[in-house]
Design a protein around this nucleic acid. Structure first.
Lengths: 348, 348
DNA sequence: GTGAAAGCGCTAACAT
DNA sequence: ATGTTAGCGCTTTCAC
């Protein structure tokens, strides 16, 4: 393979422009104390030679690495990939993260980490030592992993926690699940629905509670009772079936159901079909997350969109700002939207 | 943000173990000429201190970067992400690539490159200079981009070309599209179908031709005519509709259709439904690619699986071998499989 | 405003 | 089998 050396280095640029290495470095890093004409001359040499700084060398001399690390749960991600059911979360994270990184001259590196292991810290320490990222994006369940948070905080590496309120430090970002659930509920109530049920998600995830809270508040505001309208699920298809059966088996069955994720919504759709309940004529259905599959069901599902790309984009921006000492940390909420499709209609 | 220095370096390990830097380096790199007891002592120090080499420093001193770069088409990837229709290709590539990299102590870095631009080479040169990867995985359409191939070959960076026959060098890997199309065709013929149509894909992609060839050969082998049974598509949903309408509007309409990708298969499904043609009773349908959505259609689609993960995994293995001078390049075929679901039945 | 010197953490080449 | 030296490409001091 040949020990590849940098083809064109800062030295070539310096001699081409007839200046010192230092001046070139200043231009690269957009520092002050360079006369515009000097800057132009150096930039000319850079362009002419097609020079690009080596991030390895930059890192070596104590500067930033221009690398943002994005961490996802290993088991869950691999399982999703293997099952080949789509991994929309990852895609959207990459979309928001990579593009925003690129805008700022950074690069996003995507890694998988095993939360459940007792040596998370060791694993993370290895990744950090090897890559030396300027910032880390944590996704659930890592966002609330005390070991990870403590490690990063101790190393003074800026980190963003997606889907967490962020007790313990760092930049916390949540998508507005409570408001989104409220929005979906109001949307149905405004159409005349009165028995609007919710299938909740796994309570180990904060979002499940937030969605329940949003639904409950909106129902209360609309003067609607919620008794017997909350069914427990755990985000799995099977739990969705069970919940839908319970809900739809009641004498006074709901005229609308909000499912806390797409899998459970799909399960509800199938359950209703099996029971001869037409959607949307007999039952309106709103789903959470808006992953790709809900557009291909029959009918296509009205869904609450999780703004994952926007949230990760914001995380990256704040991480980069934090690197410049320009971010104080703290919590930020990214608004969600409702995507109307064909699974909602006024009640009969 | 503090100028982060490596917490524990090779120097700490050396002094902890009471040996020279070089010996530690030898242990890290698993070189010979170290006595087992020395090796053990050094390894002990490494473990005790939790030392991890900095890849930046390793790269600086002319060693490998332990980075494998995976390149995808920017516009297409971003469009897929934005459309939120799923980007199974990326997911599967990451699955095969990242896991295989990890097995060998490498890391996969995922980047987007704009093929259509006239400065592909410049863009790629920038990425290569910044990251200095030990190998590059090219996906279509980059696999057949002459500029990219020439650049990488010129720099003596090992590269793998997915979906290309690889004239021009490098490691070429194809999924066996021709055989797969033949397999699907025979599967239908064996059930008794005689008018088996194919909706072809965009001819700018090799796979389109390969799939057509496989279908044609299998039809010939089975003694079946193909006249009027080939419809042109371009992989888009819209082109699938048009093709399906053309095919199903004929007097002697086909009893089975093979679509060259999932979007066109879904379009065919919808078109058939609109025309009152029942699947699989009146029409059998086989799709290519086996992306997540085909399991959620009604009925779920029988599909040819593209072994993307396996192919990329193999690419990474060969790239790493190439780095050790152990791969001669050349073409390799990864077999595809047929996943039976509910969209195929014997003809009436 | 610009330049020169020192050093980041590691490995290649050369001793021993 | 192990140690020593030099240097990778860059940024940080610190001079001027």
């Amino acid at each position: 393979m040949g020990r590849r050396r940098q083809a064109v280095t800062i030295r070539h640029v310096a001699s081409e422009a007839g200046v010192s290495l230092q001046t070139v470095s200043r231009v690269i890093n957009n520092e002050s104390n360079v006369r515009p004409e000097m800057r132009a001359r150096v930039q000319g040499a850079i362009d002419k030679l097609g020079y690009v700084p080596s991030i390895a060398a930059q890192r070596m001399s104590g500067s930033r690495s221009y690398l943002i690390l994005a961490l996802n749960d290993r088991d869950r991600t691999i399982a999703d990939w293997r099952a080949r059911q789509g991994a929309d979360w990852i895609d959207q994270m990459l979309l928001g993260g990579m593009l925003t990184c690129a805008e700022h001259g950074y690069r996003m590196i995507f890694e998988l980490v095993d939360t459940h292991s007792d040596h998370v810290e060791r694993e993370l320490a290895g990744i950090v030592a090897a890559l030396q990222p300027d910032g880390v994006v944590l996704t659930p369940p890592h966002s609330d992993n005390a070991q990870i948070v403590a490690f990063l905080a101790g190393k003074h590496i800026p980190f963003a926690r997606i889907g967490s309120l962020g007790e313990g430090g760092g930049i916390a970002l949540t998508m507005d699940d409570e408001a989104a659930a409220g929005m979906a509920t109001r949307y149905l109530a405004d159409l005349g629905h009165r028995r609007i049920a919710l299938i909740g998600g796994n309570r180990e995830y904060h979002v499940s509670d937030w969605r329940i809270d949003g639904w409950r508040s909106a129902m209360a505001e609309a003067g609607l009772p919620t008794d017997g309208l909350l069914a427990e699920g755990d985000f799995s298809y099977a739990s969705g079936e069970a919940a839908a059966q319970a809900l739809l088996g009641r004498a006074e069955r709901p005229t609308a159901i909000i499912a806390s994720n797409d899998q459970m919504a799909l399960a509800t759709l199938e359950t209703a079909r099996a029971m001869g309940i037409a959607i949307p004529a007999d039952l309106s259905l709103i789903s959470f997350d808006n992953t790709p599959i809900v557009r291909f069901s029959q009918p296509a599902l009205t869904a609450v969109d999780q703004p994952i790309a926007a949230t990760v984009a914001r995380a990256v921006e704040r991480l980069i700002a934090a690197g410049n000492g320009e971010d104080e940390g703290g919590h930020e909420v990214i608004p969600a939207t409702l995507v109307p499709r064909d699974s909602v209609a006024p009640p009969r």
